[in-house]
């Protein structure tokens, strides 16, 4: 089975480890981590990803800016983006989805929720 490349953009190492831990249950997955939006963009420009998980509140560049920049890139338009954030208000969710996020998960998170969303968007049974 071909590798599934997933990028995690999150400033908290604890969260990166938790998301990575959940996603590693998918066979053939390869995880790349970035600590903020700019770092994430650098990694996106260097290689192709099958899915991106991003936080919203991050230093240097936030997740919403990252989503809009990724969606402006013709090569990245189709890549599924999942937001994982503490922001639970409905308007935050709407804003992220309007910018092009495919799903929105609020913290605190459970690993199985991340896994379910990833499998659904990657169309893995």
């Amino acid at each position: 089975m071909a590798d599934i490349n997933i990028l995690i953009v999150e400033d908290s190492p604890t969260m990166r480890q938790l998301i990575s831990f959940a996603l590693k249950r998918i066979r053939g997955v390869r995880i790349v981590e970035a600590g903020d939006g700019v770092d994430g963009l650098k990694k996106i420009s260097a290689e192709k990803f099958d899915m991106i998980f991003t936080d919203i509140n991050m230093p240097v560049m936030d997740g919403l800016k990252l989503i809009s920049l990724v969606r402006e890139d013709a090569n990245q338009k189709g890549v599924p983006i999942v937001v994982i954030t503490t922001e639970g208000a409905q308007e935050d969710r709407q804003r992220a989805l309007a910018l092009g996020a495919n799903d929105y998960i609020t913290k605190p998170i459970q690993p199985n929720r991340i896994l379910d969303v990833a499998k659904q968007l990657l169309k893995i049974v």
Binding site: M15, Q17, F21, P108
Partner: peptide, 28 residues
């Protein structure tokens, strides 16, 4: 993961930061 992160550093500020992250991200 909480336990792993808590013992991943000996830097006092980093330990505090990790405790904060656990309380925000894992407890809510």
């Amino acid at each position: 993961i909480a336990s792993y992160q808590l013992h991943s550093t000996l830097d006092f500020r980093e330990v505090l930061q990790i405790i904060m992250e656990i309380v925000i991200n894992l407890i809510g």
